[in-house]
Design a binder for these strands. Structure first.
Length: 391
DNA sequence: TCTAACTGTCATTGT
DNA sequence: TAACAATGACAGTTA
C-alpha cells in the first residue's frame, strides 16, 4: 500500500476536520472507534472509507505513533474551537492534556480572552452539558445555551481509531493513539472493564447516550476499554480530582465537606465529587439491599422447607396417634366383652348384651343397667350440659 | 437471537 | 434541611 509523503504533518486541524471527513466518514469512523474488536469486513470498510476521504491528506504512517501535540498545534486547537462554537471545558482540557499539552499551556490557551465563545475554565460556565450524536454522525454539544456541531472532535476520535487499526494490521504498536482516545472513553465508555477485544459494537443510540452528560446518561457502564477503572474513576481522573473514588465515597461527611471547602474546587469538580459520592454510596446500598433481599428469599425458602418437614412430621404423628387410639379402642372392647360375659343377674343367669350395658356414673360407681335407661339418662345429661352452657 | 442473572444508576421515600 | 439508607424500576452487559 502506498501512502502519501509525510510532508503533510502540519496540515490544519480545522481543514482536516471540515474538508477531509464527511459526516458519513465521521459516522463510520466513530462507529469503528467504539468497536475495538474489528471484523475483517469492518476493517476493510474503514480502510476504504479512510482512503476515500483522506487520500490527499495524511500519511497513516505518519499518524501512527505520532504525538498529536506535534501533529496539531495549539493554533489548530484554537482554530477548531473558534470554528466550532463551543467546547465543553472538561473535554477540551482533557483532550489537550491527554494529547500532551502542558497544563499551563492549556490553561493559557483556554483563558485567552475572546478566543473561544462559550469556553472558559470559569466554574460559572460549567453549567448543564450534554452530548449527542446526530444522525449524520456529528457530535452535538449543548450547554443549555448553545449547541454546536463537533464533527471535528468526533472525527478526531475516529481518525485515531483509524490510525489504530492501521497499526493493528500493518504497524504494530500505537501507544500514542491510546492517549488520544482516553477522553472519548471517559466521556462515554460503556465497556470500561472490557478488554479491547471484548468490546461489542455500539448501536447508534449508545453513541447518543455515551455523549451525554454523566448525570443525564443512563450511564450503565461496566467495563473499561483500557483499564479496570470505573467511569467515575475516569471522570475523577479527567477532572484532576485530588482524591480517589474510594476516598470520596468512604470519607465521613464532615471530612468530605472540609475537603471541598479547602481544595478550591470548581463547581464542576464539586458537582462531580458529590455525584461520585452519591453514586458510590448508592452502589453499596444497592448491593446491601440485594444481599438482604436474597437472604430474605433464602430465609423464606428455608422456612417453607422447615414447615414442610414439620407438616410431614405432624402427619406421621397423627397417623401414629390414630393407630394407638384404634388399638386402645380394640383393647377396651375386648375388656368390656370379657367383663360383661362374667356378670350374672340375681338368678345367676348371664346378662343379654343386647338388652343391658355396663354403665359408669360420674362418681365412679359401676352398674349394669338396661340400654333404654342409658339412652334416656344420656339425654338428660346432655340437656343438663346444654343448660349449663347456655346459663 | 432470546433469555435470565447480574449490576450500576436514578428517583423516591423514610429516618 | 442535609445526609443517608433502603428499595423499586430501569437498562446495559454477559453467559
Amino acid at each position: 500500500m502506498n501512502y502519501p509523503s509525510s510532508s503533510h504533518h502540519n496540515i490544519s486541524l480545522t481543514h482536516t476536520l471540515h474538508h477531509c471527513f464527511s459526516p458519513h466518514d465521521a459516522t463510520l469512523l466513530r462507529t469503528d472507534y467504539f468497536t475495538q474488536s474489528s471484523s475483517e469486513t469492518r476493517h476493510l470498510q474503514r480502510q476504504e472509507s479512510f482512503s476515500q476521504s483522506s487520500s490527499n491528506i495524511t500519511n497513516p504512517e505518519s499518524l501512527h505513533g505520532s504525538n498529536l501535540t506535534a501533529l496539531f498545534s495549539a493554533a489548530d486547537i484554537r482554530n477548531l474551537m473558534a470554528h466550532d462554537d463551543n467546547f465543553d471545558e472538561i473535554k477540551l482540557m482533557s483532550l489537550a492534556l491527554e494529547n500532551g499539552f502542558d497544563t499551563i499551556e492549556v490553561s493559557q490557551l483556554f483563558e485567552e480572552p475572546g478566543s473561544y465563545p462559550g469556553l472558559s475554565l470559569n466554574p460559572s460556565h460549567s453549567t448543564t452539558v450534554s452530548y449527542s450524536v446526530s444522525s449524520e454522525g456529528a457530535v452535538e454539544y449543548s450547554n443549555g445555551v448553545k449547541s454546536a456541531s463537533l464533527q471535528g472532535l468526533g472525527t478526531l476520535g475516529g481518525h485515531c481509531q483509524e490510525h489504530a487499526n492501521y497499526g493493528h494490521v500493518e504497524y504494530p504498536g500505537d501507544a500514542e493513539c491510546s492517549r488520544e482516545t482516553t477522553l472519548q472513553q471517559f466521556l462515554h465508555n460503556y465497556t470500561y472493564n472490557q478488554l479491547p477485544s471484548q468490546a461489542a459494537p455500539a448501536p447508534a443510540h449508545h453513541q447518543q447516550m455515551w455523549m451525554k452528560k454523566p448525570n443525564e446518561v443512563k450511564d450503565r457502564c461496566h467495563n473499561s476499554t483500557d483499564t479496570n477503572l470505573s467511569s467515575d474513576e475516569h471522570r475523577a481522573k479527567a477532572l484532576r480530582l485530588p482524591f480517589s473514588v474510594d476516598e470520596i465515597v468512604s470519607m465521613p461527611v464532615d471530612s468530605f465537606n472540609t475537603m471541598i471547602a479547602k481544595n478550591h474546587l470548581t463547581d464542576t469538580q464539586v458537582s462531580l465529587l458529590r455525584d461520585i459520592r452519591r453514586r458510590g454510596k448508592n452502589k453499596v446500598a444497592a448491593q446491601n439491599c440485594r444481599k438482604r433481599k436474597l437472604n430474605a428469599i433464602l430465609n423464606l425458602e428455608e422456612d417453607v422447607c422447615n414447615l414442610q418437614t414439620q407438616k410431614e412430621s405432624l402427619k406421621k404423628e397423627h397417623t401414629q396417634c390414630s393407630r394407638s387410639i384404634s388399638q386402645m379402642k380394640q383393647k377396651l372392647n375386648n375388656l368390656y366383652r370379657d367383663i360383661f360375659s362374667r356378670l350374672k343377674d340375681d338368678q345367676g343367669r348371664p346378662f343379654n348384651p343386647c338388652q343391658y350395658v355396663i354403665h359408669c356414673s360420674s362418681d365412679g360407681s359401676v352398674f349394669v343397667i338396661p340400654k333404654h335407661l342409658v339412652k334416656s339418662e344420656q339425654k338428660q345429661d346432655n340437656e343438663k350440659e346444654q343448660k349449663q352452657k347456655d346459663g
